[in-house]
Amino acid sequence: MSDSTFEPKIIGFFCNWCTYAGADLAGVSRLQYPSNIRVIRVMCSGTVSPHHVLRAFQKGADGVLIGGCHIGDCHYLRGNYMTVKRMRFLQDLLKFTGFEPGRLHLEWISAAEGPKFAQTVRDFTEKIKKIGPSRLIAAVKAA
């Protein structure tokens, strides 16, 4: 599949209080961003288990974007401390097993950062398009 026709599937796990509201702001501000992203709203990014991320990859996601409140702004005070611990660990584990760690990205986006939200989704989609289809999906299909 060539780069020009490859439309990646991207799963976004966004926290209810910041990034999801940021996405809302991007929407009402009529900011354009690619429709490759499928959003799942969670109450806190700290509730996203690495298992959910891996499940997304297994089920055909080319990229997973996690969005949470900036450190210090968490609605639950310190929930996102766990998010960054888990995702940094998972990225390193994915690297060790050759699972393309760049497909997982964590970004802090506040409710006021509509433009940052749109830009992040644009950049991430562009990055995944450049990396190409997921190695894991190809392997699953071949099996």
């Binding site: 310190r78 929930g79 996102n80 611990k85 995702m87 990225q91 990055k127």
Partner: peptide
């Protein structure tokens, strides 16, 4: 265990894209 407590500070930063 680091998985059992949130921690007093966020000691890690998100990796840049």
């Amino acid at each position: 265990s680091p998985w059992k407590v949130l921690g007093e500070d966020a000691t890690l930063e998100a990796k840049p894209m």
